[in-house]
Amino acid sequence: MKFTSFAVCALIAATTAPLASGYQIKGDVVNCRSGPGTSYGVVKTYKKGQNVSITCQTTGPSVNGNNIWDKTSDGCYVADHYVLTGTNGYVAEKCGSGGGSTPPGNGGGYCKKVNQAGLNLISKWEGFVAVPSPDPIGLPTVGYGHLCQKKNCAEVKYKFPLTKATAQLLLNDDIPKYTSCLADYLNNSVKLNDNQWAALASWVFNVGCGNAKSSTLVKRLNNGDAPNTVAAQELPKWRMAGGKVLQGLVNRRADEVRLFKTASSKQAHPNCQ
Rank of each mutant, 00 (worst) to 15 (best):
N193Y: 01
V156G: 06
A20K: 11
C272N: 03
A13E: 14
S62D: 05
N188W: 00
V230L: 03
T262E: 12
G210T: 07
S264D: 10
T229E: 05
N51Q: 15
T262Q: 15
K113P: 01
D28G: 03
L147H: 04
K177T: 09
A79P: 15
V78A: 15
S202I: 01
L11K: 13
P176W: 11
S215A: 15
V142H: 09
L11A: 12
G75E: 11
D174A: 08
N271I: 15
P176N: 09
L19W: 10
G107P: 09
K150G: 08
E256A: 08
C272M: 10
K71I: 08
L84V: 06
T72M: 12
W203K: 01
F205Q: 03
G100Y: 06
K124N: 08
C9T: 11
S180L: 13
H81F: 13
L259A: 07
V245C: 02
A254E: 11
V63H: 15
L170T: 01
L162N: 05
L192K: 09
C111V: 02
A254R: 08
E93P: 13
G127N: 05
A268I: 03
V190N: 02
S214C: 14
S62T: 03
P236I: 00
A226M: 14
S264A: 12
C111R: 02
T55H: 13
L235T: 03
N228H: 12
Q24F: 11
A241F: 06
C95A: 04
V29P: 00
Y144N: 00
L200S: 04
L186W: 01
V30Q: 09
L84G: 05
T4L: 07
L162F: 03
R258Q: 11
S34I: 02
C153H: 11
L235C: 01
Y77H: 12
A183W: 02
L246R: 15
Q273S: 15
A263L: 11
Q233R: 06
S189N: 11
G107I: 12
L171T: 05
P236Q: 00
G108H: 06
V30I: 07
C153G: 14
F6M: 13
G100I: 13
N88K: 10
D28Y: 08
K151A: 15
W197Q: 05
I25S: 15
Q57S: 11
P140I: 09
K26S: 14
V8D: 10
C181M: 02
A10E: 12
T59Y: 15
P134A: 03
H146L: 06
A10L: 07
L147W: 11
K150C: 07
P18R: 06
K177V: 09
N120I: 02
K71A: 10
L171A: 04
Q267M: 14
P136A: 02
K237I: 15
K213Y: 03
G118S: 07
G86M: 10
T85Y: 04
S180R: 13
A167E: 00
N188I: 00
L11G: 03
Q168L: 14
N251V: 08
V218H: 07
Y178M: 00
F6K: 15
T216W: 05
G96W: 07
K71V: 04
T45H: 06
D74P: 08
